[in-house]
Simulated scan of single mutants.
Amino acid sequence: MIAKNIASAFALSILIPAQVMAQCASDGGTGTGDDYATMVLGGEGGGKWNVTNYLKESTASGAFQFTYGTLQDLGYITKDSRKVGRDMYEPGEWTGDVNWTGLDGVTSRVGFLNNQKAQIAALQRFTQRNLESINADYSSTVNGIPVTPGGVGYASHFLGAGGFKQWRSCGYQPSCLPAEAIANNKSYNPQTMNDMLMGRMAEGAGVDPSCINIDNYEGEIPTVILMPWLMS
């Protein structure tokens, strides 16, 4: 369901030194950015495209668990839409003064949840924005793990660009993790969160987010209308 075939690469225009880039399959190499998308899909959405936060503790939505605020920042919801209330920490549609812009054909939360191509486009925008803001030194290592676009992208998907830079500021130590990240993820303490993030840096080291091919993914699947003789 995730990929039809791996063909040409979709460039993100991320300025990354060529020597640290895994060559995309379309350029004669073996690296694919679809591996990056699959990795984040497993780590964030548990392999599901239309999942929401089952604990009802956040507005996290879809394969890559984008929150209401992130969807605003990415341009899917207007900035003048109302702030999130507790009633929005539920599965299904968001109600009230929520104005969708129509970006990537998305006009509702359910439409976003059921649209692979739109979610991949959101992943591309979010990852590109984070990598450009972080501006990492891809010739460096941390705890023996190479610093790469895939690793930085995957860790910053959890922390955000600002949170990642704060974590980096004292050498990727638990003491520098943002207090907000700890407070919002009660299943972690600083040490276990640090271990998880270092694991993301290692897991992402071999994949290249700039190779994602958006054409490998499905758009919104039309609602199935049952004929009367098929309805119970």
Results as ranks from 00 to 15, higher is better:
3 A>D: 11
5 N>C: 09
6 I>K: 12
11 A>G: 08
14 I>A: 14
15 L>H: 15
21 M>P: 07
22 A>I: 13
33 G>Q: 01
33 G>R: 01
36 Y>I: 06
36 Y>P: 02
37 A>Y: 01
40 V>Q: 04
44 E>S: 11
47 G>I: 08
48 K>V: 11
49 W>R: 09
52 T>A: 09
52 T>C: 12
53 N>T: 11
53 N>R: 07
61 S>F: 05
63 A>R: 06
64 F>K: 02
67 T>R: 09
67 T>W: 04
70 T>L: 00
71 L>G: 02
73 D>T: 04
78 T>R: 08
80 D>A: 01
80 D>P: 00
82 R>N: 04
82 R>M: 07
83 K>Q: 04
84 V>M: 08
84 V>W: 00
85 G>N: 03
87 D>Q: 12
88 M>P: 00
90 E>P: 00
91 P>L: 08
93 E>D: 10
94 W>A: 08
97 D>W: 06
99 N>W: 00
99 N>T: 07
100 W>S: 04
100 W>T: 04
101 T>V: 00
101 T>I: 00
102 G>F: 01
102 G>E: 03
105 G>T: 08
109 R>F: 05
110 V>G: 07
111 G>V: 09
119 Q>D: 08
121 A>Y: 01
122 A>D: 01
124 Q>K: 14
124 Q>R: 14
124 Q>C: 13
124 Q>W: 01
126 F>L: 05
127 T>Y: 03
129 R>F: 02
132 E>D: 15
137 D>W: 13
138 Y>T: 12
139 S>Q: 15
140 S>A: 15
141 T>M: 12
144 G>V: 11
148 T>V: 12
152 V>D: 01
158 F>C: 08
158 F>L: 10
159 L>P: 08
164 F>M: 14
164 F>K: 12
172 Y>F: 15
173 Q>S: 14
174 P>Y: 09
176 C>A: 14
182 I>R: 02
184 N>G: 13
185 N>A: 05
189 N>A: 07
190 P>T: 07
191 Q>H: 06
192 T>D: 06
192 T>C: 06
196 M>Y: 12
197 L>E: 11
198 M>H: 15
199 G>C: 08
200 R>M: 14
202 A>T: 12
203 E>Q: 13
206 G>D: 14
209 P>M: 13
210 S>W: 00
212 I>V: 15
212 I>E: 06
213 N>S: 13
215 D>F: 02
220 E>H: 07
223 T>S: 11
224 V>H: 04
228 P>C: 00
229 W>D: 05
229 W>R: 00
